[in-house]
């Protein structure tokens, strides 16, 4: 949590929380609506553990995001950018120690 990448994520999450609040939605609704809004995305996989979590996620299918919200998200995290490279699995099989001459 103390790494610079995670600190940056905490800052962004704070801004996203404020954006969601200002836009009259929860951060969960903002995040899910944003994911299923991309023309290349068919579905977003939710992973609720409890009924309460599911109930908080379902309303996202009815949320529309205006250009102002989308622009603000792009300002916080630019298109194509992953804030912490550890958060996706790309390269896991390629950037092994042996492949790095070790």
């Amino acid at each position: 949590m103390s790494t610079p990448a995670n600190q940056r994520k905490l800052d962004v999450v704070e801004e996203l929380a404020q954006l969601a609040e200002k836009s009259g939605m929860t951060m969960i609704e903002l995040a899910l609506a944003w994911a299923i809004n991309h023309p290349g995305v068919t579905s977003a996989i939710i992973g609720p553990r409890t009924m309460e979590q599911l109930q908080a996620q379902l309303p996202s299918v009815r949320v529309t995001l205006d250009t102002e919200i989308l622009d603000r998200v792009d300002e916080l995290v630019a298109p194509g950018v992953t804030l912490n490279a550890d958060d996706d699995s790309y390269g896991a099989a390629e950037l092994t120690p042996q492949a790095r001459r070790r």
Binding site: K9, V12, V13, L16, I28, L30, A31, L32, W34, A35, I36, H38, P39, G40, V41, T42, S43, A44, I45, I46, V73, L76, V77, A78, P79, G80, V81, T82, L83, N84, D87, D88, S89, Y90
Partner: peptide
């Protein structure tokens, strides 16, 4: 994987998926 914090697929994976008419079910959207 795809979320506001993890957007790398927008550059290459998603356009490729679209080009081949594939569906994309994205994980960890939160």
């Amino acid at each position: 994987p795809y979320s506001i914090l993890v957007r790398s697929i927008e550059e290459d994976v998603l356009p490729t998926v679209q080009r081949y008419g594939m569906g994309a079910l994205v994980y960890s959207p939160l």
